[in-house]
Design a protein around this nucleic acid. Structure first.
Lengths: 216, 216
DNA sequence: TGTACATCAGTGAACGCGCGTTCACTGATGTAC
DNA sequence: TGTACATCAGTGAACGCGCGTTCACTGATGTAC
């Protein structure tokens, strides 16, 4: 082991996969730092190159080794946020097991709220970029939202089938529920956690009303 | 009539109420010009002082005769947009007359879509400012949204009473419908008019499903 | 009605500032022999 | 294994630019007598 290598390893605690791997790691650190800034209340459109660089602890021009320009960073941030959300949605899906429907829903919504609290900065970012004048942002976000909406529909149909309810024609209901979830999130952004918990009960009743329609 | 007065009247076709009235008029022209810029695709946060001034046809510093700073202009823009929306909502309310419920709803939704198309720039502005990091913006918008939601609830209860339906406990339903209207608007922003018309049918079915629940 | 003065909406020039981006350079890492 | 060279992530200085805002000034409008 040469001296230079030893020094390097002291400087960077996690050697990971040298160079290429480290570059990836830095890129990730940049995205995380930007997300944290959003979490601290900065709006995504206000995120400055220097601000992000400062927050990640590197010189401003270094950013250009990872992103061609600020828009590319913005898009990457959106995509990173969407990846987080999707994994959240996926984990929530598995929650819908056994028990009676009301109880399962209650549990599912608790998980939903937990995810919101955890991914708050990603959500905030996505909401604000949802109407970014640059159509690239909107396109990505809408594509993923559409996927999630379809996932919800399929999930509902599958659950209904398992529980022996009548099949088909669930798209109206699932779209309504998707709308309710979206507006819940939008409204939750300005609530503290207690208020979110409180409003969650209303959401639960609303969803129950939709779901129960065919079972009265 | 002195020469100077004559010249002035030539320059400004509408004399209105001199000075004070003209100042009010100019202020209004500034707001309209800003809204038009939003309509042309600029995001509200991108609206520059000079850009607005250029669009209204005056020197940049003149803006300061009407607004203390850019934030005051931004807030005024939000308030102007909200006034427009409220008048829209008020006119729609009167639409809900006689006939059978399904037909009345159809008519109401047509009016709703018409209003969206007309007030598109105001809507766009409000949506984008809904999550402005400056809490002042959010506060105003949420206050007005809350009022509109309550208006809808009262309106539904009143209509139900007139038609002899069972009273009370409509808040769940009206909140669901309000959520559906909001998400419809959000999604409509990226649709052309044909697509909006098409999606309106889905919205109609969704609302019918909610409203009909108690009457099956 | 005419005159003298006050008001004030609008202007052109200038300010300091922070932005995104470029550039030549450094020095550690990776590669070939 | 050691040596010579290529690669390339990161740097410090500098760029031009447009931003919000200030200032002293202009000249038409409003007011008092």
């Amino acid at each position: 082991m040469t001296l230079s290598k030893a020094v390097t390893e002291l400087k960077t605690p996690k050697p990971s996969q040298s160079r290429k791997g480290r570059k990836e790691e830095t890129r990730h650190r940049i995205l995380m730092a930007a997300l944290q800034l959003v979490d601290e209340g900065r709006s995504p459109s206000e995120l400055g190159l220097r601000e992000v660089a400062r927050s990640v602890g590197m010189a401003a021009p270094s950013i250009y080794n990872h992103f061609a320009d600020m828009d590319e960073l913005g898009i990457a941030l959106v995509e990173e946020s969407l990846v987080r959300l999707r994994s959240v949605a996926r984990s929530a899906r598995k929650q819908m097991q056994n028990e009676n429907l009301t109880k399962a829903l209650k549990q599912l919504l608790q998980q939903f709220l937990l995810s919101i609290n955890e991914s708050e900065s990603a959500l905030r970012l996505l909401i604000m970029q949802w109407f970014n004048p640059n159509p690239e942002y909107r396109k990505i976000i809408r594509r993923d939202m559409s996927i999630m909406r379809q996932d919800l529909a399929e999930n509902m149909e599958q659950t209904a089938a398992e529980k022996g309810l009548k099949l088909g024609e669930f798209s109206l209901e699932s779209d309504i529920i998707f709308s309710l979830l979206i507006t819940y999130i939008l409204n939750a952004m300005d609530m503290d956690k207690a208020k979110r918990e409180e409003r969650l009960k209303v959401l639960e009743q609303q969803i129950l009303m939709i779901v129960m329609r065919g079972r009265l």
